[in-house]
Structure formats: C-alpha cells, structure tokens
Amino acid sequence: MLLDGEAWQAKFRNFQTEAWRLETLPAYNVPQEAEQIREFLTGEHIDPHAYSNEYTDDLKRVRREGKSKGRVHIVTRPLSEYLRFEFMYYLPHSWAGEDIRIMDVTDRPNPLAGVQDFWMFDKKEVVLMNYEADGTQINREVYEGDVSPYVEYQRIALVESVPFEEYVKGLDL
C-alpha cells in the first residue's frame, strides 16, 4: 500500500512510543529545499540557537508526550554538499529532541549495505522510502512482511553510529 498526504502525516501524529528513520543516501532531491540549498551554497547559514519551525515545535511535542523520534544517517567522506546543508539543521533538531546519529562508513564496510531508507513506527510498522538514484522520492510504501529484520537494522545502525554532535566536533562544515 502506498502512503501519501493525510495517511502519511497521521503516522507521525499517532505513533505510540517511537518513530525512527534510516537514511542511506548522500543527497535527497527535495524541490521544497532548492532555494534554501542555493542560499546555503552562497554562504547563508541559519543560526541554530535561534532556529525554530513547525518541525522543531513538533519534536518538542513528541518529547513532552514521552515519545521519541530519531534517525541514523549513513555517510561517507567527503560529505556531499547536500549533507553539509542537512547537517546545518540537524543541530537545532537535535536540541529540540530528535536523536540524530551518524554512521560513517568511509573507512570500513557498511554493515547495512543494500538496506534502503525506511521509517519504522513503534517497532511494529515499516514504511519503505523509495527513491530514484538522484535522491528524488518515488513513493512511500507500507511494508507488508515481518518487521523483525528492520528492528535488527535499527539495532545495528544504533550500535555502529555516534551521536550527531559527537560526529561533527572538529569537522569544518
């Protein structure tokens, strides 16, 4: 079953304990971000201490409700321009309550090679994120099988990654 619109948004309102994402791509082609990326590439950056939007407000709501939202992004160096752009937002998102972790596989085998992007809700439901090679989203698809392999992918990703703020210490972003 494909997921879009209100049904997709409901997943983030209705999860009971945890919404978690695995990100595997070096860049995502998101048309809504095009102008922000252009500005970033010309040297404009957000002030992470002053940054707030609907997403950070929602992260704070999730925390107040005793729930968690997190992700692991698998990366290799040098970081793509898109990752450098995305990392600019990871700091205020982390401060707002998202558990963001980085798994750098530059100098080691990727234990999750071949696993595609996905969201997992409450360790009970998986939504596969389908992308073209350039990072353009094709669709979101509710996974109909046994979710236990995805629970294991999450476990591996968490063990093999480090907190975002630890990862970026000393990096010239």
Rank of each mutant, 00 (worst) to 15 (best):
M1E: 12
L3Y: 05
D4L: 03
A7R: 13
Q9D: 15
A10V: 00
K11N: 09
F12R: 02
N14C: 13
N14E: 14
F15L: 00
F15R: 02
E18K: 09
A19I: 05
A19D: 07
R21I: 06
E23T: 10
E23A: 09
T24R: 15
A27Y: 08
Y28I: 07
Y28Q: 01
P31T: 01
Q32G: 00
Q32Y: 14
E33M: 08
E35P: 01
E35N: 11
Q36F: 15
Q36D: 11
R38H: 05
F40E: 00
F40V: 04
E44H: 14
H45M: 02
I46S: 01
D47Q: 02
H49M: 12
Y51G: 01
D57P: 00
D57L: 13
D58P: 02
L59C: 13
K60Y: 00
K60M: 15
R61N: 09
R63H: 04
R64C: 07
E65A: 10
G66K: 00
S68P: 06
S68D: 06
R71Y: 15
H73A: 10
V75E: 13
V75Q: 11
T76D: 10
R77S: 05
L79S: 05
L79N: 03
Y82L: 03
F85A: 00
E86A: 09
M88V: 00
L91A: 11
S94H: 14
W95N: 09
A96W: 09
G97Y: 09
I100C: 07
I100M: 01
I100Y: 12
R101I: 04
I102L: 12
I102A: 06
D104P: 11
V105P: 06
T106R: 12
T106I: 15
P109V: 04
N110K: 03
P111W: 09
P111D: 01
G114E: 03
V115T: 01
Q116P: 04
Q116F: 03
D117C: 06
F118L: 03
W119Q: 05
F121Y: 07
F121M: 00
D122F: 08
K123H: 15
V126C: 04
M129E: 13
Y131W: 13
E132K: 15
D134C: 03
D134P: 02
G135S: 09
T136A: 14
Q137S: 12
I138F: 01
R140F: 15
R140Q: 14
E141R: 13
E141K: 11
V142Q: 11
Y143T: 00
Y143P: 04
G145Y: 10
Y150C: 06
Y150K: 12
I156T: 11
I156R: 08
V159S: 13
V159D: 14
V159F: 02
E160T: 07
F164S: 06
F164T: 03
Y167F: 15
K169E: 14
G170M: 08
G170E: 06
L171G: 05
L171H: 07
D172L: 13
D172H: 08
